[in-house]
Amino acid sequence: MELDGCLSWKGREIVWGKAGSGPAVVFCHGTPWSSWLWEPFADALSAEFTVYVWDMPGYGRSSKDPAHPVDFGVQAEVFTALLRAWELDRPHVVAHDYGGAVSLRATLVHGVPYASLLMADVVAIPPSGSPFFRLVKEHPDVLSKLPPYVHESVVRTYIGSAAHRELRESDLARLTRPWLGEEGQGAFYRQIAAYDEGFLASNEALLGNLDIPVTVVWGTEDAWIPLATGERLAAAIPGADLTRVPEAGHLIQLDAPVQLATLLRSWLGRVAGR
């Protein structure tokens, strides 16, 4: 999919792409990922749906200005601005990782109406964050000064740990590439340092207000965020379903692509009547 759209928002450049026709489906990525993880799924659905992908500021191909905050609150404001710019009427939203908290905040705090919400292995409620995450939060300035070859090794190991299966070298290289170089290295540690669990607590307190179809999908082998968190999230949302995906870790898009694509199509068939 071509990411040929760009929204200018408060000095940021947010890159996005659109394809297909039919009911709107918007994909939200997480950290340290980008829209690239969702592009194959969006492409597959574009025959029946109008699909949108976007890179959050600080990620992927969007701007990475060190002066711009990249916390949950800002990203939810960006997502709200994007949806309004696209003039979408109650889109179906699909979120992974950090995108869960962002999409929840956009609807629960900013009042953006959705038709449905599917959340896969999301950062949405506390507690969250790996030991590495906590280390970065305590020493963001030190780690951002690592020699480039050490930094690259750290990022590759960290990203690799998100998958239950060994990643193909081409996929690992593609996921690592945005975080290399002076700009990428700084952005990598800034987005972790910006993590604020207070936003997750705020989301959790409002989950009972969700009145749309919601499904939660979770890899049973997620080493970053345990299945128990997904079970607690689904239990807190009125009427939510939980689907467990065996032999899948946090990078469910790469661990179980066929199962996830099948779940997405089945879910959208039910909630969009397609």
Rank of each mutant, 00 (worst) to 15 (best):
M1D: 10
M1W: 03
D4W: 00
G5F: 00
L7W: 06
S8L: 11
R12M: 09
W16M: 03
S21N: 15
V25K: 09
H29I: 09
G30F: 02
T31W: 13
S34G: 06
W38Q: 05
W38L: 12
E39K: 05
A42H: 07
A44C: 11
L45C: 07
L45G: 08
L45D: 09
L45N: 08
A47M: 02
V51F: 05
V51Y: 10
D55C: 04
D55P: 09
M56E: 07
G60W: 00
R61L: 05
R61P: 00
R61T: 04
S62D: 06
S62Q: 04
H68I: 12
H68E: 14
V74Y: 11
E77I: 04
E77S: 07
V78Q: 01
V78L: 02
F79G: 00
T80S: 08
A81S: 03
L83H: 00
W86G: 00
D89L: 05
D89N: 13
H92I: 02
H92L: 04
V93F: 02
V93S: 03
D97R: 14
G99E: 06
G99Y: 01
G99M: 08
G100N: 04
R105E: 08
A106C: 07
L108G: 03
L108S: 02
V112S: 00
V112P: 00
Y114K: 09
S116M: 10
S116C: 08
L118Q: 09
M119D: 04
D121G: 07
D121V: 10
D121N: 15
P127I: 10
P127D: 14
F133R: 13
V136I: 15
P140H: 15
P140D: 12
L143A: 01
L143P: 02
S144H: 06
P147G: 11
Y149F: 12
Y149K: 10
V150Q: 12
V154M: 15
T157F: 02
I159M: 04
G160A: 03
R165M: 00
R165Q: 07
R168S: 10
R168T: 01
L172Y: 00
L172T: 06
L175E: 12
L180A: 02
E182T: 15
Q185G: 05
R190D: 12
Y195I: 12
Y195A: 14
D196C: 05
E197H: 06
G198K: 14
S202Q: 13
L206V: 06
L207E: 07
G208F: 12
N209W: 02
N209A: 13
V216F: 06
G219P: 10
T220M: 01
D222I: 12
D222W: 05
W224S: 09
I225F: 01
L227A: 13
L227H: 09
A228R: 12
E231M: 11
L233R: 12
A235C: 14
A236Q: 08
I237H: 03
P238G: 11
T243E: 13
R244W: 01
P246L: 11
E247D: 15
E247N: 15
E247G: 11
H250P: 09
L251P: 00
I252S: 04
P257V: 15
Q259T: 08
G269H: 12
G269N: 07
R270V: 14
G273V: 09
G273E: 15
